[in-house]
């Protein structure tokens, strides 16, 4: 059985995957000795649905500025279209010979191909959505580095004003994403690092305030205050980098977080 990366993809494809598995078992146990009915109509319905998906997919790919999505779409289209053609061939062959074993095998291969091709297509779009979240996280990462140049209270206020909405936006997106993942370890990793960031953001602001105050009072204890602030920035940067890394994992990367 295939492993689906997100709950949305799983909800759409898993019931069909189970049905295809049952058909495979029937075929492999040689319990499919009865005459196959005319499958022309259901195969045509699959073909129409595939053509619609390809059309919608091409429209979306044409309108996006995500270059990776544009590159990854065509092979996914080809996979699902080839499987649809295979189904049509199987239906024709079964119409001629309702007992044909090679045609039954072709039917199963076609159904499996439709599943994996549709899964690949959905994964392409899903990864495009992931890249949008990664961009937000990278923005936060870059902005965290700005904290090292804040040396007065006015700049600190500006820094906090800019950091807070960015951090909240990222946390919301990452939390939503964690709820979508079927891989528990990946989901928990995202939640844990997001919680770390929520906890350490006020600590960072405090450490920056101490640093600014130390500078204002003449600089005694500057090194310690700076080291403390930099340590917190390091921890937060680590959490954001881990979020970026985990976001980009797929279900195939099962052992990445073990």
């Amino acid at each position: 059985m295939p492993v689906f990366h997100t709950k949305t993809i799983e909800a759409i494809l898993d019931p069909v995957a189970q049905q295809v598995s049952q058909l495979v078992i029937l075929h492999e146990e040689a319990q499919d000795g009865n005459a196959m009915p005319d499958l022309s109509n259901p195969v045509m319905a699959v073909s129409a649905a595939v053509q619609n998906l390809v059309k919608v997919g091409k429209d979306t790919a044409n309108s996006t500025d995500d270059k990776i999505l544009k590159q990854e779409m065509p092979p996914a289209f080809t996979g699902v279209e080839e499987s649809s053609n295979k189904l049509a061939e199987a239906a024709m062959e079964l119409k001629r010979d309702p007992y044909s074993s090679p045609a039954r095998k072709k039917l199963i291969d076609g159904a499996r191909g439709i599943l994996s091709g549709t899964s690949d297509l959905l994964l392409c779009f899903d990864q495009s959505e992931v890249r949008k979240i990664v961009r937000v996280a990278k923005g936060v990462l870059e902005y965290l580095a700005v904290s090292e140049v804040v040396e007065c209270l006015e700049d600190l206020v500006t820094f906090v004003k800019n950091l807070s909405p960015g951090m909240a936006n990222m946390a919301n997106k990452v939390t939503s994403r964690s709820k979508e993942l079927t891989h528990t370890a990946h989901a928990n990793g995202l939640i844990n690092h997001t919680e770390n960031l929520k906890r350490t953001t006020p600590v960072l602001v405090s450490s920056m305030k101490i640093f600014v105050t130390v500078l204002k009072k003449g600089g005694a204890g500057r090194d310690e205050a700076q080291q403390n602030r930099n340590y917190i920035i390091g921890c937060m940067s680590h959490d954001v980098n881990e979020i970026i890394r985990i976001l980009q994992l797929t279900s195939a990367d099962d052992d990445e977080l073990s």
Binding site: T8, I12, L13, P15, V16, Q19, V20, Q22, L23, L26, Q31, D32, G33, N34, A35, M36, P37, L39, P42, V43, A45, V46, A48, A49, V50, N52, L53, V56, G57, D59, T60, V80, L87, R104, L107, A111, I114, L115, T118, L121, L122, F125
Partner: peptide, 29 residues
Amino acid sequence: EQILEAAKAIAAATSALVKAAGYAQRELV
């Protein structure tokens, strides 16, 4: 959203096909 709807339509059509093929042999759950 449109992609998801299109994928749902494929899933439904494939399910109907597999059932049609399966019913001929043995009822699928």
